[in-house]
């Protein structure tokens, strides 16, 4: 087929995928239509579930999103932020370190290889 991309062990076809996707959507819509219809509008039944609390009115800004992730990864972030100093001196310093590491490993590796 025109749209098929054959990879090492299989193939990928966006048109087939879309067909499958549409079938899944239809099934999902059917299951959703089986839901209850006799709910009461304007009561708590139609409110957003916010762990039983009243949902906040003010804007949830982007900094608030994923705070749990950042809390869990706090050690990693403090460590990685130490490298991002924003000083051009440090950028040059890392460059020199990388150059020296590559030269050293090429020379050592060259001795071991031959």
């Amino acid at each position: 087929m025109m749209t098929t991309l054959s990879t090492i062990r299989g193939f990928w076809d966006p048109v087939l995928w879309m067909a499958a996707f549409i079938i899944v959507i239809v099934i999902t819509c059917y299951i959703r239509s089986l839901g209850k219809e006799e709910y009461k509008r304007g009561t708590e039944q139609t409110m957003v579930f916010f762990s039983g609390n009243i949902p906040p009115k003010e804007l949830i800004s982007s900094s608030n999103i994923y705070w749990g992730f950042f809390k869990a990864m706090e050690k990693y972030y403090t460590c990685i932020r130490r490298f991002h100093t924003g000083m051009v001196n440090d950028y040059v310093y890392y460059f020199i370190v990388i150059v020296i590491v590559i030269i050293a490993s090429l020379i050592i590796g060259g001795v071991l290889w031959m």
Partner: peptide, 8 residues
């Protein structure tokens, strides 16, 4: 540079 750098 120390005084005006744009920190991350």
């Amino acid at each position: 540079m120390k005084k005006w750098r744009l920190v991350e």
